[in-house]
Design a protein around this nucleic acid. Structure first.
Lengths: 337, 337
DNA sequence: TTGAAAGCGCTAACAG
DNA sequence: CTGTTAGCGCTTTCAA
């Protein structure tokens, strides 16, 4: 009942190990008959190739590493589906690593990848990531890497993002057109380009509408629900409180709804709300949430496809390229008609 | 700039490979000084151990496989967090595999595990899984396996579940007490014990309340949102339509809300709704959704802990045991006060 | 306490 | 088309 190896198959079939190995990998230099014999014996004896041995030999693992900050988030969960779809189709395995927004964890994970554990990586950096040495090191070792969503611009590789700037601009503009004068921007990081692009979109929209930009209206959330909640609540208590909010991350929407409820502020009458969000629940919220919905599945799929192509070429270099997949602006009832 | 190996460290230090190997794994048979020297050189040269080589040698991979039907689901996403928390702490890596509710995929994945790619597995079966040969095969090869949430009772190992029967009973009873007479049960599988337990809870609650059980009220959803939507909508159009619904899976709640909206049925006035759900959005829905919230994180954590313990013991056998972590019944406004 | 050598299971030249 | 052989990088007896 124990593990059966190529060697055993070979003995059983009175063939050499290499013949069996080649037959199994369907090499052209093996006759159809032997291939058949080998495969029959393999299934008969229930042979399962040892992945580590072949990886050691060939130097590649047929697995890709996906490094993301969090999995309880519709965007990342959907992106995983996209990644997985193309990986599985190409015979690749997927290892998912969570940084929990922690830079040290991200470093540890990428460091481990240097051993060749994965053939390539798909990365969406943590909110704390500013240093890039760990990424450069990995790429220098010949491990191709593609960014998605949360990218580092300084690193020369392909980056899959969505039109963050435009969507933030559009959303902010929408809020202004619907009458907002004091719009809050909820940021999840003051370090990441994605966050700053969204912030810039917000700022420029205000500017173009002749509204003064106030740093007091830019809230840097701490990834700590309780503190963030209090921060926001205090902000909404002020005499001339905000009348619009743009959230840069899905989960912030809950914080907003909660705070408004606590303060008896009506959405959208008192405060209008828009959030970057892929939540399926958005349509069923009270009120239905106006969202910027990112093409999560597509982004994952595209990132994985680019990586697979590089892997197929056996070249670790990946073109420095920005692929921007547009998000959808879905107007619902958390903003006025 | 290329991969550096133990051999290179050895040469550099004028030591043998084995000494270096032992030093790195902190073996007691190596002197403190050499350990120090080795470690210094290792970090200096930026040595990263080759995971495949060590796995080939030792026969274990220090990684666990997590097989789940879906990742865009709060329950599974949260469970992953629980699993990951304990795995990382114990120095294990986590590979996540999605079956997308497809039995064949599940089989392929477990088959691949027979090669020793993972040291142990955490499994939540697909909605189609009735045969168990693939699981038995894997376990026979000495790969320990722990079930969580969607278990197979016939297989002798530890199973982490929640009190599905009681919660379904409680929820159904609640609906009856609040005046429902025609309660729909939305099932995601007629094969899985978890689904049947929930169904039994529903049935027994009806029975205990003297309400006739009708097969017409048990809807077997097909994992196809559109069809499921139409099925439900038709059901809600009937002259003596249902006045209560119990959904056995989070995403069904959306189908319900959507159908009610389309038919202009008010929740909870016309139809009262309860769903098994871990959605954070539940409180913010319109109306807020009464839920049965499973201890997802805890379940993942417990499953992983049990597995880690077995792995530490180097024994692949895991006690046949049922660990039941209670869910919370959270009453909100989708049921009457 | 350190070293030599065999081997984990498979792949990949190179010969035959 | 098939076989021989030498590794891949690390672990692990067994000697020294």
């Amino acid at each position: 009942m124990n593990k059966i190896t190529i060697k055993m198959l070979a003995k059983e079939l009175r063939l050499s190990v290499s013949t069996v190995s080649k037959a199994i990998s369907d090499s052209h230099e093996i006759s159809p008959q032997t291939k058949l014999r080998v495969n029959e014996m393999a299934t008969k004896l229930n042979y399962v190739p040892n992945h580590f041995a072949s990886s050691l030999g060939t130097g590649n693992s047929k697995t890709i590493g996906v490094v993301i900050p969090e999995v309880v988030d519709s965007f990342f969960a959907q992106a995983i589906n996209g990644i997985e779809a193309v990986a599985v189709e190409k015979g690749y395995h997927v290892m998912i690593y969570l940084t929990h927004e922690n830079f040290e964890k991200e470093k540890t994970i990428l460091k481990d990848f240097e051993s060749g554990r994965v053939d390539g990586v798909l990365l969406s950096v943590s909110r704390e990531t500013t240093k890039t040495a760990h990424i450069n090191e990995l790429m220098k070792k010949g491990v191709p890497l593609v960014f998605f969503d949360r990218v580092i611009n300084e690193i020369a590789t392909t980056k899959i993002t969505t039109n963050d700037y435009e969507m933030a601009y559009k959303a902010t503009n929408h809020l202004v057109k619907k009458g907002c004068q004091q719009i809050l921007f909820l940021s999840f990081s003051n370090l990441l380009s994605i966050s700053n692009k969204r912030l810039d979109g917000y700022k420029n929209a205000l500017q173009d509408n002749g509204i003064e930009i106030s740093d007091l209206n830019i809230l840097h959330f701490k990834n700590d629900p309780k503190k963030d909640y209090l921060l926001l609540k205090n902000k909404l208590k002020l005499p001339n409180r905000a009348d619009g909010i743009l959230a840069s991350v899905e989960k912030f929407a809950f914080t907003i709804y909660q705070a408004c409820e606590a303060l008896q502020l009506s959405i959208p009458t008192d405060v209008q709300v828009i959030s970057f969000s892929n939540l399926e629940a958005a349509s069923f919220m009270n009120p239905p949430l106006t969202t910027i919905a990112q093409p999560a599945f597509e982004m994952g799929k595209t990132a994985a496809t680019i990586l697979m192509k590089a892997l197929a070429r056996k070249k670790s270099e990946i073109a420095e390229e920005d692929i921007i997949l547009p998000s959808a602006f879905v107007v619902r009832k958390s903003t006025r008609v």
